[in-house]
Design a protein around this nucleic acid. Structure first.
Lengths: 343, 343
DNA sequence: CTGAAAGCGCTAACAC
DNA sequence: GTGTTAGCGCTTTCAG
């Protein structure tokens, strides 16, 4: 392994000069610099980053804590983080928690042991106060989860208003009996989406019927099961708002098995815009989160902290977009109307 | 930041002893060890990993080079890698290439600069000879791509025989006019799957009609487009073998739009068993790769190299499984038969 | 069983 | 502009 000392010797300069050529080339006379550079090239010198990192006490690595990367919501955000990180010379270390909070606590050790310069949490399982105290000591950004009242730099969406918009769309299509399949209600995002649902109904003077709200767990299967349950009650809903796309798809499957047509007999709306929601049959109407941008923004916020720049605004809420597709009938209605006109 | 020196002082021992307690506790007298441990606990000492890594010239980080993590094939493998890595005290650094070969070459620098202890390639874009030479100098494993004749440790599946099995299943269902939508034919996996298709036909004395082979690019849209093309030719196929699930789903969409029923009018088989193939309507018959195991095995192979253990066998080919679901009609036929019997 | 001490390769303050 | 040099915190050899 050729090291800086060797380069220095061959170029007849000191190691300090070699180091300067690498970091502050303008402070070295051109002739010297060229000489050094040519030697570096000649012997194919690669600086030992471990030594540099040790000396400077920085790794240029950031940790991303994620429940599972197979979920395209998370991998979408990670792509944004990766992109922004790479363009600033940072690398992404993946911390998969498999949805276990103890793994999250373990990963924090990487920060404390200085193995990463900062951390982005795509999960909200740890104690908020602990997160808060961590944030005071280390660069940290919370993505996807906005913890009310917690002054930790975060990037999120507004689950409440986005859901409200989705449900209002269903109402505008004439639906009054709208059911909601929620996520696990211990999570803030599930609560937020549930609140949006309630707000939309109340704003439109529609009674919130308890029977029409069923708790799922974000899986396809739970969507399927809760849908069967919803269609078994006396006064069945004409529309379903599921707290994520997987459950929406599960609900569609159940509807089909019950001989119902989606959207003609029952409208379905999801949340997340995962990759396959547009490819599902029918294509799922859903709320699209700006995943890539969320990742980018999170990384930018983290960089500001790492570089010790003042953070003017620490909480960012990015806008979602309601994508009206076939599963809610919004589009089909338009088509029908157009056809009627043209007839 | 409390450091080893501080612990040593408080425990009235030397730094060497503290270090021993951490790495070879059995070489320290129990009383001394307990004293040191209690001080470590008391002052909440966390070793500076950067210093340790520098000193030992190892990072306990491995690099995974991946074209895009949004694809569940890759994220599935990564989960396996992550799992195995974590259980041996290693961490996974993510190198997203966005399908650009220059990013791959850049990432190799991390290895050369000793920022990672090894590398797993989930991509096959670099020059094989370069990969070979890298492999001679650094711990490296090739996953998903098996480069014929290249003696680089690798974990892969047998694309040829797996495809052959899938197509033979279609033949066993009575199909003779079977089309194939390939992946980009510059990739070894696409070629392999194409070969399997040809072999199955030839083995069964079925003519390989050129018109029935169309090149896609692994996207849903290409599956859709190639399907439309295939159904426009004179003697249309009765079954489609797509080189991956996304294209198979695109083909199903096209078939539906043409008013065809899948599988009654046309059978479709895919490859990969991505998360949504079982949730698609109809559920896609596909070849399941053991993704998690591939990741695990790759990591194990890499560890062997890092630890300098002799590698008895360097090329592993894991077995795939044909999952017969609704899209090929295999299951439905059985159902119908049972009903006929019971009637 | 324990301590002293020599570095690992690089950076940066200081001196010239 | 360039060289000298003192560490960064830890591991490990060698001596006792």
């Amino acid at each position: 392994m050729v090291k800086m000392r060797d380069v220095a010797k061959l170029a007849n300069v000191s190691v300090a000069t070699v180091s300067r050529v690498l970091h502050n080339p303008e402070t070295v006379k051109e002739a010297t610099r060229n000489k050094v550079l040519s030697v570096i090239d000649e012997v194919n010198y690669k600086p030992n980053m471990l030594a540099r990192q040790f000396r400077r006490n920085e790794t240029n690595i950031i940790l991303v804590v994620v429940p599972s990367i197979i979920n395209t919501v998370f991998s979408g955000i990670i792509e944004g983080i990766e992109y922004e990180a790479a363009s600033h010379g940072y690398r992404v270390l993946l911390g998969n928690t498999n949805r276990k909070v103890e793994n999250e606590y373990n990963l924090v050790d990487l920060l404390k042991k200085r193995q990463t310069d900062g951390m982005i949490l795509l999960s909200e399982r740890m104690d908020p106060n602990y997160i808060k105290s961590l944030s005071e000591e280390y660069p940290l950004v919370l993505a996807t989860a906005y913890i009310e009242g917690l002054k930790v730099p975060s990037v999120s969406i507004d689950n409440v208003s986005s859901s409200r918009e989705a449900v209002e769309h269903l109402i505008s299509l004439g639906h009054r009996e709208i059911a909601h399949i929620t996520g696990p209600l211990q999570f803030a995002i599930s609560k937020g989406r549930y609140s949006g649902y309630r707000q939309a109904l109340m704003q439109n003077n529609i009674e919130v019927r308890n029977m029409l709200v069923q708790e799922g767990d974000f899986t396809f299967e739970s969507g399927y099961n809760q849908m069967l349950k919803l269609m078994a009650i006396e006064k069945t809903p004409t529309a379903i708002f599921a707290a994520n796309d997987e459950m929406a798809m599960g609900a569609v499957k159940a509807a089909k098995e019950l001989g119902l047509d989606v959207p003609k007999d029952i409208a379905v709306v999801g949340f997340d815009n995962i990759t396959f929601s547009s490819k599902f049959d029918p294509a799922i109407t859903t709320v699209a989160q700006p995943l890539f941008e969320m990742g980018q923004k999170s990384m930018k916020l983290l960089l500001q902290q790492i570089q010790g720049k003042p953070i003017l605004k620490s909480q960012y809420i990015l806008e979602c977009e309601l994508l009206v597709r076939d599963s809610c009938g919004g589009k089909i209605k338009e088509k029908v109307m157009n056809e009627e006109i043209s007839t």
